[in-house]
Design a protein around this nucleic acid. Structure first.
Ligand SMILES: [Mn+2]
Ligand SMILES: [Mn+2]
Ligand SMILES: [Mn+2]
Ligand SMILES: [Mn+2]
Lengths: 220, 220
DNA sequence: ATTTAAATTTAGACAAATCTAAAATTAAAA
DNA sequence: TTTTAATTTTAGATTTGTCTAAATTTAAAT
């Protein structure tokens, strides 16, 4: 089982998208990979031929078990290398992603397992994401509503449960989107509104109704 | 200047060949890269267009200054990764070449320099070959082939020029590795084979082909 | 100096991965 | 329910790197 770098990138991106959506669309994947929908369709055919995903034209797609296993191995490599770069080579957590995006395609399984041991079998990468073990097992952190998040606990937006245009417009205006890292600075019991801090931005206030529909996961 | 993996492989192989030959031939490069002469010609045109080598058709070729600089950077990466694999990940010196052949194409210059620092700026890789520094300087050590070593002159193995698995396996079986101290006890003109003595071991016989690829330096 | 052989290059093809433009399908709006 | 818009797929082209087979050039042998 050895896949090209491009196939590995596709598998990984599909894996992430289907965690949120269940089913993945051509446009979503093209956006995630910064490529064109037509290119995605081309690749989908190849991945389907290799029996890595379930796909019917015009109907969306998702990884099957084989595809998930392959994707998880790529994610494992990516996160172990990021951990290595930060912990051993003194890189900042914000400058390792691009390099790991290349290193994740080195194929030696033995290398990855030795690296894992060398690093002391870490279970979380520098961004707080879990690192799959050698067998591909990993603890998917459960996501909670922003309204349940404790004060001052760093978290990352992992889903928006109410996806009305109005809601998304409001969040966009407050600079909150999927992946945004934030923490709660203050809670107002009067109306259960929250004051939320995002790095490099002034604090913003969210109503209880909004907070309820923003799902977050631990950000280390 | 960022080059594709294939171009980097070509540059590196040309560099090594021209150390021996001065000028490099199409067939020699094809053999070194396990590819076809026609493919080499194709690549030569591209490298010439990018002004990395001097080339006239049917007349051989060699790297210019730019090409040498690029090749040395690839060699630096290759050898630093090999050192990392052996010293930090506990790989055997005979199993790292293939992996380094992939790792050498990771492009981040910062990564290489950080790795270098992390490893303590080593100047010799696990096969005894010198590691170029950040500016591309490196000490080509004065070493001779074992087949040129005079009788009964103590020497120390400093490099293995043919690093195939088969070669390394053979040497391992005869208890010869980097740093091994030895001397030639007898030379057989019939087939140019050698009888070599290693301290605390019975003498071993080496073929001319093997001896040619074992490089030694004066034993202090 | 011819002839023969070896080395090298060209011509034409192919696979992988990508793209643009146009067609087909599905979803949304009127 | 038409009509319109958005999404997705196809058709055909492009780039990079590789190959085989044939042609060209250089080197070796007679
Ligand atoms: Mn990352
Ligand atoms: Mn990648
Ligand atoms: Mn090597
Ligand atoms: Mn390589």
């Amino acid at each position: 089982m050895k896949f090209s770098a491009s196939k590995e990138n596709h598998l990984k991106a599909i894996f992430h998208l289907q965690l949120e959506q269940g089913i993945v669309t051509t446009n979503a994947l093209a956006a995630a990979l910064q490529t064109r929908p037509a290119s995605v369709t081309d690749m989908l055919k190849k991945l389907k031929d290799q029996k890595l995903l379930l796909y019917e034209r015009y109907k969306g797609f998702r990884l099957n078990n084989e595809g998930k296993k392959a994707a998880i191995q790529v994610i494992r490599k990516h996160r172990l290398w990021e951990y290595f770069l930060v912990k051993k080579l003194q890189f900042g957590w914000d400058e390792v992603h691009e390099i790991a995006e290349e290193l994740e395609h080195i194929s030696s399984k033995k290398l990855v397992d030795r690296l894992d041991a060398f690093l002391g079998f870490p279970d979380t990468d520098p961004h707080g994401d879990p690192i799959p073990d050698s067998q591909g097992r990993f603890l998917q952190r459960r996501q909670i509503s922003l309204s349940e998040l404790p004060l001052n606990k760093p978290a990352q937006v992992s889903a928006i449960s109410s996806q009305t245009t109005e809601m998304l417009e409001l969040l966009q205006h407050k600079h909150i989107q999927l992946g945004t890292r934030l923490e709660i600075r203050k809670k107002f019991p009067f109306d259960n509104s929250l004051e939320v801090k995002i790095r490099n931005r002034p604090p913003v206030t969210l109503s209880a109704q909004v907070a309820k529909n923003v799902l977050v996961k631990d950000d280390e």
